[in-house]
């Protein structure tokens, strides 16, 4: 929307027709904090698995994480079916799926390490190498693309000073291109860790990055 007034985007609720807070739109006001042990077994696989705080050597499947894994496992007739959730859990803690992580997950589920590698590399959301504290995924698929997604992507690269897929020197940002994020009516859609930022235009980018660094500073 070329002549729209400057807005600080973040969610697609700010068109003036609804009186909603960001938490309302994002659902945070309703969903609340998700406990690490995962509350109900049926929903325990749904914990966000891209957190700012990660430790590549964090112990996996211990303590409350073990509890959560066991809840997840109880929902499937086969151990193999718990593979994606287990990898999600591992990525949540460690930030990426290293060969060592694949190996550990394989032993946990009684699968071969090669099999786990085959599965992990099939899915794009598993980071095969470490990424920045904020993984910025800019949709450049058709609906966003015809509305200027390429410029948004370029702006993120420019303002983070990174090359596509590389992590900024301060370890804060990794910018990648994403396929359709299913928010096509609100272009450009950018996913930053677990959050969707919608209606993003190139000139919004500095504000978004500032918001992220402010959040980091605030802890």
């Amino acid at each position: 929307m070329s002549d729209a007034p400057f807005r600080n985007p973040g969610w697609a609720g700010n068109t003036g027709e609804f009186d909603l807070s960001e938490d309302d739109v994002r659902g945070a006001a309703y969903a609340g904090e998700r406990p690490p042990e995962g509350r109900h077994p049926s929903t325990s696989a749904s914990y966000p698995f891209m957190l700012v705080e990660r430790d590549p050597y964090a112990p996996l499947f211990e303590g409350r994480h073990k509890e959560r894994y066991e809840k997840i496992r109880s929902r499937y007739p086969t151990a193999m079916a718990a593979l994606l959730p287990a990898l999600n859990l591992a990525q949540e803690l460690r930030g990426h799926i290293s060969p060592e992580t694949m190996d550990e997950v394989a032993s946990l589920l009684g699968l071969s390490s090669a099999y786990v590698r085959g599965v992990a590399t099939f899915y794009t959301m598993y980071n095969k190498r470490p990424v920045g504290r904020f993984l910025i995924q800019v949709c450049t698929n058709i609906s966003c693309n015809i509305c200027g997604a390429d410029e948004v992507l370029a702006a993120f690269l420019e303002h983070t000073g990174t090359e596509l897929g590389d992590t900024s020197d301060d370890g804060n940002f990794t910018v990648v291109e994403a396929e359709c994020l299913a928010a096509c009516g609100f272009p450009t859609c950018v996913q930053i860790n677990e959050r969707y930022f919608e209606d993003v235009s190139a000139r919004d980018v500095p504000n978004i990055l500032k918001r992220l660094t402010d959040e980091l500073a605030a802890g």
Binding site: P99, M102, D103, L111, S112, S113, A114, Y115, R117, G118, T121, F122
Partner: peptide, 19 residues
């Protein structure tokens, strides 16, 4: 002996062992 797998997908797919 599940030591071989297809790694990656689409036209990037190759056959490999565990690293």
């Amino acid at each position: 002996d599940g030591r071989l797998t297809v790694v990656e997908r689409g036209d990037r797919a190759v056959i490999d062992t565990f690293f």
